[in-house]
Design a protein around this nucleic acid. Sequence first.
DNA 1: CGATCCTTTGAGAGGTCTCAATTCGCGTGG
DNA 2: CCACGCGAATTGAGACCTCTCAAAGGATCG
Lengths: 250, 250
Amino acid sequence: MKATDRAVETGIQMQAMSTSVMCQGLDREAHERLFCISSVQHIPAKTAIYFEGDLPERLFEVLEGVVKLYQMTLDGHRQITGFAYPGQVFGLGWNGTCPTTAEALTSSRLCSYPLAKLERIAVELPTFGVRLFRMISAELVAAHGHMLLLGRKSAIQKMASFLLALSHRNLEQGADPDQLHLPMTRTDIADYLGLTIETVSRTITLLCRMGVIALPQRHDPTILNILLLMQMAEGERSDFRPRCSWQSSL
Amino acid sequence: MKATDRAVETGIQMQAMSTSVMCQGLDREAHERLFCISSVQHIPAKTAIYFEGDLPERLFEVLEGVVKLYQMTLDGHRQITGFAYPGQVFGLGWNGTCPTTAEALTSSRLCSYPLAKLERIAVELPTFGVRLFRMISAELVAAHGHMLLLGRKSAIQKMASFLLALSHRNLEQGADPDQLHLPMTRTDIADYLGLTIETVSRTITLLCRMGVIALPQRHDPTILNILLLMQMAEGERSDFRPRCSWQSSL
DNA sequence: CGATCCTTTGAGAGGTCTCAATTCGCGTGG
DNA sequence: CCACGCGAATTGAGACCTCTCAAAGGATCG
């Protein structure tokens, strides 16, 4: 590699860092310290990044691609706890060992930071520590929401919620909220929603027949009626009061 | 209240603080600063502490009693995301608003800290910030584990896992791991495990008939065969390999 | 163009839910 | 002290949703 190439590469990397969610809003010092300990790597599709039970070593940010995080039961069932898209962080939230396996869904580009050095930065630059805390808080909120989906929603509600979440993500990214893309297989969707692959397939077919979505390509559904989709995600009856006063004796 | 009473009360409170999980292992300065912003309160049973959607204001630690945390779907279903026992903290992990409602299951004594002041302490005393981070990490790990239970376990597996978790908690607390106590109703258990009240009841009856547990009192099961219970929690087949090499193309 | 994996679709079984009735436990008041 | 009432828990019967097993239809890639 020539010197000019290295310079170009560093330039690309610095650009990646400045757009990184890890760095946004941080002062110059934090920014530079993060850059110094960061490293960018390419991961081919279907490759594990770390395993459930490993000792956590690095924090990852997705630059390109999608990563799935999952846990296994001892009898061989799998539960995907989340998908990490570009701009999202994973590898946070361990308790001794990694609770999940991380595996690249598609060919991905990741930026990673050694946890030990990250902790030192967090200790020395409290604003960065607060940022890390915000990130893991967001993950916990998402986890709580997903627990509600897994425990209390029907197959159609789960599927509708999933599609709406993807739509919402598109909106945030400035993409068309109706043109979705599913980089994961039906098996992955099933393991994320707590269903079987057949039920996922049948539910998608059902949504198509109802005219709520279209499916020109198997991995690229289009939302045709987002209002109906939202209704389906929430369930039938909407005669619900915001405050649960019948529960509380207040 | 007389001065001596106040002194006694303060003594009790300081004792509570020194045994508090929030304080364990912290230096004298952090300890004292926490004590200054802390307040202890009693909450009667079935009383909400905060509501889903509220602006988070305080972090709570359970001193006595049990608190349940839950979310509602728009069609009126409930998912309990966790129970907080003495020595456990809740109110951490928000993203704008509280993701869950917190409600005292039994008459409880709580110690709470204003979040704003807590953040200041975390910024000024990084070791405390790290401690907060560890706490929320543990919550995230628990949430992931519960997602696996909700999405991929049968009614018996869920019930067995629940009882084992309580048993494990007893063990940590130095109590008899076989003598359990369920302060929550069957409805609460159902909403925690993603089942109906009837299925919970039937599953408990089944476990009794199999001789895995006994039920002298409705809220106080006894584990008779913990090995079998562990087997049931994990599922039938145990021909499972620790590393998921069939998934990864490594 | 065959091989393989992913996906769809069907039929049937099974687990969990729903609805309903009964029993149990406990506090209240006669 | 006992009868009563109410909520919680248990139990039963049947329906329904989802899973399981099986086969066929597509997509992709060498």
